[in-house]
Nucleic acid binder design. Sequence first.
DNA 1: TTTAATAATGCACACGATTGTATTGAATTA
DNA 2: TAATTCAATACAATCGTGTGCATTATTAAA
Lengths: 365, 365
Amino acid sequence: MITLEDIARQAGVSHSTVSRALADSPLVHPDTKKRIQDLAREAGYQVNQVARNLRFQSTRTIGLVIPEVSNPYYPKLIQQVADLAREAGYSLQLHLSGADQAAENTCLASLREQRVDGILLVTAERGLVAREQVNALVASGVPIVLMGWVEDAEHIDMVMGDDAKGGYALAQHLIGLGHRSIAILGKPSHRGGYDRLFGFKTALEEAGLALSEEMQLVANSDAEVKSGVIQLVGLTAPPTAIFAYQDSLAALVIGHLTDMCVPIPQAMTVVGFDNLDLATYICPHLTTVGGHIEPLAAQFVNLLIARIRKTHPNTSPQRVVITPQLVVRGSCALPRRESSITKKTSSPGGYYQQLPTRNTQETSR
Amino acid sequence: MITLEDIARQAGVSHSTVSRALADSPLVHPDTKKRIQDLAREAGYQVNQVARNLRFQSTRTIGLVIPEVSNPYYPKLIQQVADLAREAGYSLQLHLSGADQAAENTCLASLREQRVDGILLVTAERGLVAREQVNALVASGVPIVLMGWVEDAEHIDMVMGDDAKGGYALAQHLIGLGHRSIAILGKPSHRGGYDRLFGFKTALEEAGLALSEEMQLVANSDAEVKSGVIQLVGLTAPPTAIFAYQDSLAALVIGHLTDMCVPIPQAMTVVGFDNLDLATYICPHLTTVGGHIEPLAAQFVNLLIARIRKTHPNTSPQRVVITPQLVVRGSCALPRRESSITKKTSSPGGYYQQLPTRNTQETSR
DNA sequence: TTTAATAATGCACACGATTGTATTGAATTA
DNA sequence: TAATTCAATACAATCGTGTGCATTATTAAA
């Protein structure tokens, strides 16, 4: 690799002059400057950021720690973060902590060793695994912002979606349609999940509805989703609507219901959470809650950069909460009249009737 | 941040001794070593990789340039690459070149300045945009591997899927089912797309089938996919099968067909390409071609690392071709009997009959 | 006791870029 | 002509690590 010294030799000057010439310093004679710049261009000189970083004690790089990318929620986030970071002049060091966040410690240690200017840490199911690491980072003044609601972390900047409000809105929507028997399927895999459940239950209670035990089913895997769906449909009084904790779960639910010849939304309403792209890929399109990834990502990055540049008006730990919005699509309908849907699945030949999706246009409230 | 010098002062030794002690060198007295290590641990010392990188002329970081992440193909790739890179002890610097690859030059320049040990460049629609940059990198000995088939780049290591074979396999499968009138919808957005088309056409020709102009429709946006589907269905002799260039396109096609009350696969067979996760989210599950992302990613990373470590047996530019596999799912059926499907869509009330997806188990050949 | 061998540690330089300070040389002024 | 000013450039230190080489201190051998 070509260094300042190489260019300096060629130009017959010292490396300091080359440095200043390339920085367009007025201390260098215009002719010399021109000559050096031409020489550097011809030689294909590119500054060594490693040396520069050592000198400046700054890397203009931010670290992004994300559990995984197979859940489509994360790529969407990465895209936003990458774009915003680039706009602000920062490179992105991506580390995957694993779906179980097992590598969270390793990721943070690596980022710290690399002396990134700041860290964006996305938490998931297991909350803040690397708590001590993060405390140490905060203590030593490394800017870090968490995404997700982490308990007992009042000293850390955090950005999160208001999942409770989202769950509340979903339940209200279903209740407004007339649903009285609503099941919840999946697992609150992180704080957000519990909040969704809490908001959902709150709306139910306000409407004077109770959530019985048999209407709350835990499901971790596709197989458990399937058995859960079978169990719900097999009840003597099956629910008229199912709330899945995430869009991807809802997609599985819809798949299994379709396999069992339960028409959606006529015989069963299904709703999800997050408003991923796949919500519009599946049939019928999924009613869900979302539209908050963009502002969430924006606050995530902006807060970090404000911390790095020390331009944030408030030095106390910030808590940014973004309210998601209800997105109504085709997977919701008025509750069916019959008290049971099992007749349908036992109809001869396994055929079933399905209405076309009438409302393909999205409406957002 | 704490430096070797800080620890050295505390221990009353020189920084060289501390450096050696932390590297567990036999040149340091066991007692001193122990004392220094304890001191460093207590102080929370973490080595400064920036300084180390400068010293060693290596960053143990590889750069990954990817157009975007909204197409689910890419996240899958990122996951693989990230895992493999970490296993090999490398960090990942992620740069998004944009769907139009507009920032490809910038990304490469940045990575070069950062002195990454090697670069993984994923090309897309526009092929190799930053050709000069890449040539310069190759010339200066920076290890770089391309993903995707780039023309006139015999001097660069390349890894690619054999899209022609994939297209061929898809067409053969459809022909084997008895389809004789097959449409192609979408756009060959990159070299791979043309190969898919070529392989597909080859199989058709071998079977004595011609591909008429009206059966080849270009579609860039969702709106164009919709009008294309309408156009195809409206033909006096509509096709019995549609091949979309990518799974995400196929998902849109299925969506629009469903909206038009065309039952899939009874009245129309639809196939995609890539075997993304969404292929199993949509209803019916999509027959597609794929399963090659994993080996592709593995070769991608392994080749680069072999170049970095100079352990590759062959110094000449490599061309790694991975053959994708046919994945048969529920979106294919025997061609329908009727010559037209337009009657169905005009049936009273817009209802239609749909068979349940019987074969949810995947079969791979 | 002296010399040689060996163990343990410090010194100094290199990596490449930036920048404060010193130095040179030319032009200007007294 | 000598002093002064100022433009242009070189020198040297810095950032934090790692390591070859020199320098001690200690022990073993003669």
